[in-house]
Design a binder for these strands. Sequence first.
DNA 1: GTCTATAATTTGATAGAC
DNA 2: GTCTATCAAATTATAGAC
Lengths: 202, 202
Amino acid sequence: MSKEEKILEAATDEFLTKGYDGARMRSIAESAGINKGLLHYYFKSKEALILKVFHSLFREIFSELSDIFNSELSLFEQIERGIGTYIEFLIQNPRIPFFVVGELNRDKKAHLRRMKEAKVPPPFMELGRSIEEARKRKEVKSDTTSREFILNMMSLMLFPFVAREMIMFTQQINEKEFEAMLRNRKKQVAQLLIMDLKVKAK
Amino acid sequence: MSKEEKILEAATDEFLTKGYDGARMRSIAESAGINKGLLHYYFKSKEALILKVFHSLFREIFSELSDIFNSELSLFEQIERGIGTYIEFLIQNPRIPFFVVGELNRDKKAHLRRMKEAKVPPPFMELGRSIEEARKRKEVKSDTTSREFILNMMSLMLFPFVAREMIMFTQQINEKEFEAMLRNRKKQVAQLLIMDLKVKAK
DNA sequence: GTCTATAATTTGATAGAC
DNA sequence: GTCTATCAAATTATAGAC
């Protein structure tokens, strides 16, 4: 692994756990096994470094989903598999959602500019279209809009990872119970969302 | 307003917008119209100050709900009103959820110790009990546990406020459209959750 | 209680040798 | 490319006058 890769790995870990303001360049250099000077040789500044890290993670967090929602599966199969796969991915990478959300709160403009330049497409566009098509075919019977649906889906999938500690407190459960609950959610969330689409609007 | 109150108000604003690591004692002193020395006279340290701020906000964010869920209304009315009132509260105080979540991620132990000392009860206990009672009376027919239900409810209510910027990007909408969507959610989220409780388990 | 002045430390970043 | 040494600025916190 090159020094540059080691730096990126160490920086990712530091930013994921401490956030931009809490992260320390010194700490990143130490973890990467190099000195501070070299950090600034490869990455001009702390800001430039986190932009790079954010960009990779944002791609990662949404690319998995794109594959599924662009597949040939039926809408309901896409949703079921998409949610299962995604929650499993989040169990393996639990800190990404809070980091991404926090960075966009801290400096939306800088990140969006960079993503625009790199032509990262906004996720879920494809899913939204599939839902509207299924609605025309009467497979979707509720009056939930695709936008509302996607927001509900994101909320149910991502919130437990963003607010892990808060949930463990309000529900008075420990790590083990929490993780068991997460695994259950794979089926449970898909079921809830699909029912919402299928139930007839009144 | 006393100097101490002015400090607390300024500190709340600073911590809500910048978080612990991003907040500056100098900035708080300026906003409060006092000097830095006085900050440390009233509050020993930055840490002590944020503990105080967190504690008040955490109480605030959950006390509204407790009133409703301890009322004499029927379960489904409690849920409907609780969600409506709460989302409206969040529209008025949109930064609280991200702050609370972030602080618990940063230093769970310190905050929990303080809340235990102050005997702040974990929220939603009452709601959980009501659901289980309604299940015995066959008013709740699904196999969704009360824990799962509460987690779904928190996710659907809080996530849009935690991840506001991310949602606006992924959905490609502006402030106005986002806020219209939030208002819609009052009814829409309640409807979805209640349906989940009423639908028969298969 | 409220202020000024300053201590003590830490931070991100740069200069320059090799 | 990689390192050492160091700068300049900013931070929290304290001491002490009034």
